[in-house]
Amino acid sequence: MASHVTSRLVLFVIFFVLVGLTALTVWVAYQDLGSWNAPVAVAIATLKAMLVIVIFMEMRFGQPLTWFAGASGVLFLLLLIGMTMADAMSRGWLGVPGK
């Protein structure tokens, strides 16, 4: 069974796009975007990660189950970060020390 094969051209193009995005993330880091620097950095990193996943890791041929597996990992990670941060950020609200 011959599997799907990605052409060399696509691989090289994606590589150069990734290098370009790396340059972009460095450039953006030196611009003052106020509180937006971190979200932009994470967004660019996520874009790069998706390119690696879809092209290099061949997930565009992947089965739904594989997507589901990967997505569940990200989902539970966001859950861990989200609920921990929900605690940390709402700690001062009551005005009672230590609560």
Binding site: T25, V26, A29, Q31, N37, A41, V42, I44, A45, A49
Partner: peptide, 13 residues
Amino acid sequence: IYLFPLLYLLGRH
């Protein structure tokens, strides 16, 4: 890809 901006680049501006 995530570690690089989060550790090296934050607060550069």
